[in-house]
């Protein structure tokens, strides 16, 4: 608040770098109830439409020799399928639609968030925490249901010397419960940081002497953000697979 006020006076920062993340109701009204249609809702809806457009309409011809859209859809399918199969093994393939859902949503939301004037849904902790908690709960519930107490073998490092094992168990336990935190904050933090940095450079563009530098910096950051948008979706998905592997095959 203070920065904004000062910036406004000096004619430098005319907008706040975090303003782009504000959730606003789309159709008037001041309060945000749980059912209110906001800009976040709009961009989630656009992500859904984009996914349907790519994965359903793009493949509607079922061509043996694929069109451009169909090869993108097949590429995404093959990419995630191979990841799930490689990391979790053959019996992890039943989680493939779930992992694919996460991957498609995150990658679409990240890329759509890079459009100018858009809203990045994955930059909000509310979204990424839910995504990460879903993974965490899936892993925990599935692991306990499938392996029972054997699932606790995840924390008991049987390859370590016996006196060390309780200490390691505590560390493993902490790291297990920190997983959803790091899992969610990594995604939101990366996306938010990139967008905020772009906005900061955009604020500098108002100052005539450094505006060329600022434009170049925005371009470079934008390129980096395109990379980050994909890599963070990939990292989120592969960590999901790694955690699912723990549920499927506990024990070190």
């Amino acid at each position: 608040m203070a920065t904004e006020a000062h910036g406004g006076e000096e004619g430098g920062l005319v907008f706040h770098p975090m303003d782009q993340f504000i959730v606003k109701p789309l159709f008037g009204g001041d309060t945000i109830e749980w059912y209110t249609i906001t800009n976040a809702t709009l961009w989630m809806g656009i992500a859904v439409l984009a996914i349907i457009g790519l994965m359903v309409l793009g493949t509607s011809r079922r061509a043996t020799i694929p069109t451009r859209m169909q090869s993108i859809a097949e590429l995404a399918y093959g990419f995630v399928y191979k990841m799930v199969e490689d990391v979790t093994g053959k019996d992890g393939v039943k989680f493939f639609p779930y992992v694919m859902t996460l991957f498609m949503f995150i990658v679409m939301a990240n890329f759509l968030g890079l459009l100018p004037m858009s809203f990045t849904t994955t930059s909000h902790f509310a979204v990424t925490v839910v995504l990460a908690l879903l993974v965490f709960l899936t892993v925990t519930i599935y692991g306990v249901a499938k392996h029972g107490t054997h699932f606790l073998g995840l924390f008991w490092v049987s390859s370590a010397p016996l006196p060390l094992r309780p200490v390691l168990a505590i560390i493993e336990l902490i790291s297990y419960f920190v997983r959803p935190v790091s899992h969610s904050i990594r995604l939101a933090g990366n996306v938010m940081a990139g967008h905020a940095v772009i906005k900061v450079f955009a604020g500098f563009a108002a100052i005539a002497t450094i505006s060329p530098v600022s434009v170049v910096a925005i371009t470079a950051m934008y390129g980096l953000e395109v990379l980050v948008a994909f890599i963070q979706a990939y990292v989120f998905t592969i960590l999901t697979c790694v955690y699912l592997k723990d549920a499927l095959h506990p024990g070190h």
């Binding site: 990841m83 490689d86 990391v87 790091s182 990594r186 990366n190 890599i231 990939y234 990292v235 592969i238 960590l239 790694v242």
Partner: peptide, 11 residues
């Protein structure tokens, strides 16, 4: 894949 996991943890 291991590379990206390592980068993710460090980051």
């Amino acid at each position: 894949a291991t590379l990206f996991i390592g980068i993710a943890f460090a980051e």
